[in-house]
């Protein structure tokens, strides 16, 4: 479905719900995923300037998450342009997407929509790396996993001897650099602080706020936990159910951007090049769009070329080169 078709649905939603819609989709196409990042802010500024100060802004979100600082900045940016901020989730707003949703006065979720835990991971220059992998890359360290390890010693194994607990901490510090551990505990405090600030603007019951934060940060057990609207509502979040007509619109939009971004087809260069010698490609891996601002895509463009490589003392091997010529946001 091209943008023009989606635009007509955005227009209908804006008219029927007295709002301004901005859609933000970070692609989850296998092998071509994108995440919420600070680079979206400039695009949002342009779109929001075109909308201007308004009563209500509705952010349609489809994301697996991303950078927590960018998510926090995005919520604050949108809120400076409106009195009421709401989020539409046709399918999923995981992790940092859930963090964004915490800042909304209303979260419209379809029956298949999912929210998820907001506990972050830290990728630090002094963090652990895969022994035989890229020596510059670091494995993300889950903030709650470190906390869980220490809690397991004290709570589950009931170790209360200070010397033994000290040796457990020393052992952890020998595997994860102390500066990384320091950043981990700072990040843990920060995500709770951000969630608290976002929630307390519209959830007045402080016990409820604490329960939401505890569940989303730690008590949900693992980071891939998904929460449907019934559970989100029971937790105390301001969840709304779309009418049948509105559900149909959200589903059409989801189908529309999914087909444009080919979210259900893994990106496979071999399949893309097929029997050809070379093929140019353009992948739309993220979308930010609105009625007034048009459609912006996070685009990767390049050429896939087959060539023959001579292996010393061996037969020829076929090689596929990916020559990337553009990667970034552009108006579609």
């Amino acid at each position: 479905m091209p943008f023009l078709n989606r635009k007509s649905i955005y227009k209908k939603i804006e008219r029927e719900h007295d709002t301004k819609v901005i859609a933000y989709v970070t692609g989850d196409r296998p092998n071509a995923e994108t995440q919420i990042g600070a680079d979206c802010i400039d695009i949002f500024v342009d779109i929001l300037d075109k909308i201007g100060p308004t009563k209500r802004i509705s952010l349609l979100l489809h994301t697996n998450g991303g950078n927590t600082a960018a998510a926090w900045r995005l919520v604050n940016l949108i809120k400076t342009f409106c009195d009421e901020f709401e989020v539409f989730i046709p399918y999923k707003a995981m992790s940092a997407g859930t963090l964004i949703s915490l800042g909304a006065q209303k979260i419209v979720m379809t029956k298949q929509a999912a929210l998820g835990p907001i506990d972050p991971s830290l990728v630090h220059p002094l963090g652990p790396h895969v022994p035989n992998g890229n020596q510059l890359a670091r494995i993300p360290v889950s903030v709650e996993a470190v906390r869980g390890y220490l809690d397991a010693a004290a709570t589950d194994l009931k170790i209360d001897n200070v010397a033994v607990l000290g040796s457990i901490l020393m052992d952890l510090a020998s595997k994860v650099h102390p500066l990384v551990l320091g950043e981990i505990f700072r990040s843990r405090a920060q995500i709770r602080f951000l969630a608290l600030k976002l929630l307390k603007e519209h959830v007045k019951d402080s016990d409820k706020v604490q329960a939401i934060i505890d569940f989303l940060c730690a008590d949900s057990g693992s980071h891939d936990y998904t929460m449907n609207r019934r559970e989100a509502r029971a937790l105390g979040l301001p969840i709304a159910t779309p009418s049948e007509q509105f559900y149909g619109q959200l589903k059409k939009l989801h189908k529309g951007y999914s087909s444009e971004m080919k979210l259900l087809e893994p990106f496979n260069p071999m399949v893309m090049v097929g029997p050809n010698q070379a093929v140019n490609y353009q992948l739309v891996r993220g979308l930010i769009e609105s009625v007034n601002g048009g459609s912006y895509g996070f685009v990767s463009e390049g050429t896939l070329t087959r060539s023959i490589m001579q292996v010393p003392n061996g037969p020829q091997a076929e090689q596929l080169n990916d020559h990337r010529v553009f990667e970034g946001w552009k108006a579609l």
Binding site: E33, N64, G66, P120, L122, V123, H129, A137, R138, E183
Partner: peptide, 21 residues
């Protein structure tokens, strides 16, 4: 990458909340 390993963008690291599909 199965481990989702990546090169940190900042000296203080990247704090992400991301769920693999």
């Amino acid at each position: 990458d199965r481990m989702r390993e990546r090169v940190p963008e900042h000296p203080w690291g990247n704090v992400d909340a991301y769920t693999s599909a």
